[in-house]
């Protein structure tokens, strides 16, 4: 096993843990952190394959992913704060106002 394969393996394990976090946790903040974990796992795979193919483009893409993640965190946390003001809770099961 070379280092690229190992990092790709690590990336898929971390991504799966992030998916489990989104599926299992009920706090909006924890779900959001798990999404960040999944983004980070994808970045690891990008850098690993950029290293393997001796290309810089993978690292450039990671840079853009990080910028988009920063924008996403700013808007997402603003949404969570606004929801907390009206519902007094960050539990996603309490947000059932659209349920028929």
């Amino acid at each position: 096993m070379d280092s690229t394969t190992f990092v790709a393996l690590l990336s898929s394990v971390l991504f799966t843990i992030g998916v489990l976090g989104v599926l299992l946790r009920r706090s909006a903040l924890l779900i959001f952190m798990s999404v960040e974990l999944m983004l980070n796992a994808a970045n690891l795979a990008f850098v690993a394959f950029a290293h393997r193919w001796v290309q810089l483009d993978g690292q450039i893409f990671v840079f853009f992913v990080m910028a988009v993640a920063a924008a996403e965190v700013a808007v997402g946390l603003a949404l969570i704060v606004t929801i907390f003001r009206t519902k007094r809770s960050t539990n996603v099961d309490d947000l059932a106002a659209l349920k028929g």
């Binding site: 280092s3 190992f6 990092v7 690590l10 394990v13 971390l14 843990i17 992030g18 489990l20 976090g21 299992l24 946790r25 924890l30 952190m33 798990s34 974990l37």
Partner: peptide, 17 residues
């Protein structure tokens, strides 16, 4: 080195979960 780092990485992800 990567195996040690990977073990810490997976352990901290499980801690988050």
């Amino acid at each position: 080195i990567l195996i040690v780092l990977g073990a810490v990485s997976i352990a901290s992800a499980l801690g988050l979960l």
